[in-house]
Design a binder for these strands. Structure first.
Lengths: 160, 160
DNA sequence: AGGCCACCTGCAACTCTTATGCAATTACTG
DNA sequence: CAGTAATTGCATAAGAGTTGCAGGTGGCCT
């Protein structure tokens, strides 16, 4: 769990220009730049892992924002294509910042079926062996690929 | 909700030998052959797609069986390795009959994010581009691969 | 600078799926 | 065919996700 937050200080204390940039991104997405939306966007910006609604609520538990508000903030960001909502198989939606450059989604995610740890697998690609009956979405890489198995830690632990 | 599953060739009218075979399978799994368990097992046997608990409840809504009973029936079948519980990413467990031959899971599954239809993709394999940080489970193919996207039908429908 | 109003928030309540405790019932064993 | 442990029915609950509504407010327009 590495938290290399650059500013090192409070979420709400980002430099004015970054804040302005976030406001701009929200408005370009057709969203008003409200305090909670700015904070959620900043949180996703800074997070190296996708966050669940519950985790976002936890992070902002000292703030006056309601869980429904944060929930709708997250959905708003997804609607405005500033974030993506993903499901890694543990029945909890997670939200991650949408990368500015289009379609970085093509790298698989590895999910440990025991500890639920998620890791990105840019070193793995799909190979089509036989092309009959391959959906067009696959051919066009408009897909999410999820690999489920035991991570090395849980794997060595389970080897009897 | 259109429900025309009033069984013409009724669920409960299977041939006696098939019924006996199912009873036998249940007992070999260490489970008593109760009416509801037999019916659930038969339903999974006959279904070509994985079914959720809610769908099973729907199918048997005319029967006197409680939803908790059907739920536990499904878990019992999984426990006895007569069925598998899978999660296709919509936070609803689905149950499918366990194939007799072991570990047929090595081919990817394609799941339509809209219609939830699942299809097998034996023509697709994983290719490791860079081998750093690849979990051993992946190297040893001890994994489930799930590809999520729009199936061709839903895809053409969504193209505006 | 100030007002307007559509968008946004807070609150409460709700759905849906999954899950469990307990008393009554029942499938199997002998 | 009775005894008993497994199973069921009912009630209930946790947890994530979702929504209706009344009141608040960001940002445009003057």
């Amino acid at each position: 769990m590495t938290t290399n937050i650059h500013a090192g200080t409070d979420m709400s204390m980002s430099t004015p220009d970054l804040e302005q940039f976030r406001k701009q991104r929200l408005r370009e997405a057709g969203l008003r730049a409200t305090p909670s939306r700015l904070a959620v966007l900043e949180l996703l910006d800074r997070s190296s892992v996708p966050l669940s609604h519950g985790e976002v609520v936890q992070v902002f538990r000292a703030k006056p924002w309601d869980r429904a508000t944060l929930y709708r903030n997250l959905l708003d960001l997804v609607r405005g294509r500033l974030a993506r909502r993903i499901d890694v198989g543990d029945r909890i939606w997670r939200f991650e910042i949408a990368t500015p450059h289009p379609h970085d989604t093509s790298h698989p995610h590895f999910v440990c079926t025991t500890c639920k740890q998620i890791s990105c697998m840019p070193g793995i690609d799909l190979r089509v062996i036989r092309s009959e009956d391959i959906p067009k979405a696959v051919q066009n890489q408009e897909i999410d690929v999820e690999i489920r198995g035991l991570c090395d830690i849980c794997r060595s632990r389970s080897k009897r």
